[in-house]
Amino acid sequence: MITVSLVALSGLGLGACVSSMAYTSKVEAAYPAEGRQIDVGGHDVHVLERGPGTAPVVLMIHGASANAREFTGTLAPRLETDMRVLMADRPGHGYSERFDGAETLAAQARQMAGLLDQLAPDQKAVIVGHSFGGAVALRIALDRPDLVSGLVLLAPVTHDWGEGSGTAWYNSIAANPVFGPVFSQFVPIIGPSQMKDGISSVFAPAPTPQGYYQNSGLGLLLRPPNFRANAQDMTRLKDELAQQSARYGDLSVPITVFSGSKDTVLSPKLHAVRLKKQVPVEMVILPDEGHMPHHGEGSAVAGAIRRLAFGRQTR
Rank of each mutant, 00 (worst) to 15 (best):
M1D: 10
S5D: 09
L6Q: 12
L6V: 12
A8L: 10
A8P: 02
S10V: 12
L12F: 08
L12V: 10
G13C: 15
T24M: 01
T24A: 07
K26E: 04
E28T: 11
A29H: 07
A30L: 08
P32W: 01
A33M: 00
R36F: 06
Q37R: 04
V40S: 00
G41E: 08
H43R: 09
D44R: 14
V45P: 08
H46I: 06
H46T: 02
G51C: 09
A55W: 11
A55L: 11
I61T: 11
S65W: 07
E70D: 11
E70V: 11
L75Q: 09
A76H: 04
P77T: 10
R78P: 09
L79A: 08
E80F: 10
E80A: 12
V85M: 11
V85R: 14
L86S: 12
M87H: 13
M87P: 13
A88Q: 14
R90K: 14
H93T: 07
F99M: 08
G101H: 07
E103H: 12
L105W: 00
A106F: 09
A106M: 05
A106S: 15
A109E: 03
L115I: 01
D117H: 06
D117Y: 04
Q118T: 04
L119E: 03
P121Q: 05
P121K: 03
K124V: 01
G129I: 01
G129A: 03
S131N: 04
S131W: 04
G134E: 00
A135D: 00
L138V: 07
L138A: 02
R139M: 05
A141P: 02
L142H: 02
R144S: 04
R144M: 01
P145C: 06
P145D: 06
V148D: 01
V148E: 00
V152I: 03
V152Q: 04
A155D: 14
P156R: 06
P156G: 07
V157Y: 12
W161I: 15
G164Y: 09
G164I: 11
G166V: 08
Y170V: 14
A174T: 04
F183I: 06
F183P: 06
F183S: 08
Q185T: 02
F186K: 05
F186E: 03
F186D: 05
V187W: 03
P188V: 02
I189N: 00
G191Q: 06
K196V: 02
I199W: 00
F203S: 00
A204Q: 05
P207N: 11
P209C: 03
G211T: 01
G211D: 00
Y213T: 03
N215D: 13
N215R: 15
L218N: 06
G219M: 05
L221H: 02
R223D: 03
P225L: 06
N226L: 06
N226T: 15
R228T: 12
Q232L: 15
K238T: 09
K238P: 05
D239E: 12
A242H: 13
S245I: 01
A246Q: 14
Y248K: 11
S252A: 12
P254K: 10
S261V: 05
L266W: 08
V273M: 15
L275S: 08
K276F: 11
K277N: 14
K277A: 15
P280Y: 09
V281S: 12
E282V: 11
E282I: 08
V284L: 12
P287N: 13
G290L: 09
H291A: 13
M292P: 10
M292F: 14
M292L: 13
G296K: 10
G298S: 14
A300I: 10
V301K: 11
F310E: 09
Q313F: 11
T314R: 10
